[in-house]
Design a protein around this nucleic acid. Structure first.
Lengths: 168, 168
DNA sequence: AATGAACTTCACACTTTCGTGAATCGTCTG
DNA sequence: CAGACGATTCACGAAAGTGTGAAGTTCATT
């Protein structure tokens, strides 16, 4: 390690972690997630703790408690984080539910797909299905329904797939 | 239709169409697409023409040609629109390739998933797979690989599914 | 060559979004 | 019940994103 002190190595590790968090969050943002929730999620995933207090997240990400508050609220609502409270403590604990984490991810995708379908269905109703544009909308609806099935199937299959991959 | 003139009905139809376009574009934006590309795509899908000139898109959406220019470029790059040129004409024609349209959509999703995997893989390399956080990243990578397979399979199956749904 | 039409590029103004800091609220502890 | 700690809300300033108008470029036609 040469002349690098332990403290500097820790800092270097933190910096590497934060760079990864930022990159990962960027990809999540491209999928529609907001910046701060994306960062918090990436951080909670990649850092080593099992549970995080809001203060830890703020300190670790170098952002204000206010930013954490809004981010975790959304993440809890989506189901990416679970809020816990240790008896005799005043601070909330946030933990990402390993077992069902990616199941929840797909579930969220499926719900987004549902909103998609609703909008298209309403459009078909209002604009008519007979016109050329309407026919395209009908096909769109069918495709979305298909994709819906595919993802719903995937979320069911993931647990066993997970197990299978753990060995092979 | 009472005392409503034909012209007013046309306008009403246009207004209904544009409202739908805006709603549909909003959902697309929530999935990460930029506003103007989302509008152009929604418009080209829902309106009745098979091919559109840039001028038609600008007129139909009530936006500037400059906005169309940027939007179609991105849409062509993704593969949602195909640029054509009628011999003896000066204007480009944009057509959405009905047959492979939603195939391209999933293909784009798969590519996004690939970027996801790349970022996570790089993170595992830099941060290590032995730590608790690293183990979560490894599982994330496995899940993304699984989802990748699922979507790749879906894109292959869609054409026959499409045919099957067209009858049943 | 020159004209003109369509497409593109670019700087700007406008809007929206984002994170912070301060104040407020609620709740547990001593 | 007082004190305090943590979480939340809100207004504000900064930053990013978005579409327009005008200038520039390309290319077919005359």
């Amino acid at each position: 390690m040469g002349d690098v002190t332990v403290a500097e190595n820790i800092d270097a590790g933190r910096a590497t972690l934060l760079r990864f968090v930022e990159r990962f969050a960027l990809v999540l943002r491209e999928s529609g997630m907001q910046p701060m929730p994306a960062r918090v999620f990436a951080y909670a995933l990649a850092d080593d703790a099992d549970r995080y207090t809001a203060a830890e997240l703020a300190e670790g990400l170098q952002v204000s408690p206010a930013a954490i508050s809004g981010a975790v609220r959304q993440l809890v609502q989506i189901g990416f984080l679970v809020r816990e409270r240790e008896p005799g403590t005043r601070s909330d604990l946030y933990v990402l539910d390993d077992a069902h984490l990616w199941t929840r991810f797909v579930t969220a995708e499926v719900q987004a797909l549902q909103r998609f379908q609703d909008v298209v269905a309403a459009g078909i109703e209002q604009l008519g299905a007979g016109r050329p544009g309407g026919r395209r909308l009908v096909e769109t609806r069918e495709f979305l329904a298909f994709l819906h099935e595919v993802l719903a199937d995937a979320v069911v299959r993931w647990p066993e797939e997970r197990e299978r991959r753990r060995r092979g």
